[in-house]
């Protein structure tokens, strides 16, 4: 499954409000779900963060979990104008966040495959210094599509 096809432009927020790590995660989750469902997802995501930050370094974080609160794989992207502290592996602040939530029942393990793909793409974004490049959500999704294609070709 193509990653760009899992992104929708209303879930790509390029002017995400900077704030504390927990608040930023909260804002992104509420763009996917509301109420008790959102509360459950946030709790599970924060438990995952307690095990070690999902800030993979060089300005990007990929918070992720499975949750009973979603029916299908959901992805939200946020970019902050000002980098925020995410307790990242390299201690550097983060300005691009890919948030991914998967349902518990997941035929074909789409979740781990997609998560792995996002990690690869995130590394390309930092390598080519593309974090702030896209001006609109459409441009962002097109950029992801390009990177994904170049990675597939390389294989």
């Amino acid at each position: 499954m193509n990653l760009a096809s899992l992104l929708s432009k209303d879930r790509v927020n390029l002017s995400l409000k900077p704030g504390k790590k927990d608040d930023v995660i909260n804002d992104l989750v509420y763009s996917i779900k509301k109420g008790n469902d959102a509360a459950l997802i946030v709790s599970t995501l924060l438990k995952r963060e307690e095990l070690g930050s999902t800030g993979i370094g060089k300005g990007i974080a990929i918070p992720h979990c499975r949750s009973l609160a979603v029916e299908k794989l959901e992805i939200a992207v946020g970019r902050t104008s000002k980098p925020i502290n995410f307790n990242s592996i390299d201690k550097k602040p983060v300005s691009l966040i890919f948030l991914i939530i998967a349902p518990p029942q997941d035929p074909g393990n789409q979740y781990l495959i997609t998560l792995g793909k996002i990690v690869q793409i995130a590394k390309e974004i930092t390598k080519k210094n593309l974090i702030q490049k896209a001006k609109t959500p459409d441009e962002f999704i097109a950029m992801i599509n390009e990177i994904e294609k170049s990675l597939t070709k390389r294989k």
């Binding site: 459950l40 709790s43 599970t44 999902t54 993979i56 990929i62 009973l68 518990p104 781990l112 792995g116």
Partner: peptide
């Protein structure tokens, strides 16, 4: 109950070899 269930899935996922290979930080 739902949080317990989510946590159990989280434990199971962190033990997956394909997950470990992704290089996420884990205490």
């Amino acid at each position: 109950l739902k949080l317990l269930f989510d946590l159990d899935n989280l434990i199971a996922d962190t033990e997956e070899p394909s997950y470990k290979k992704m290089g996420f930080q884990l205490e």
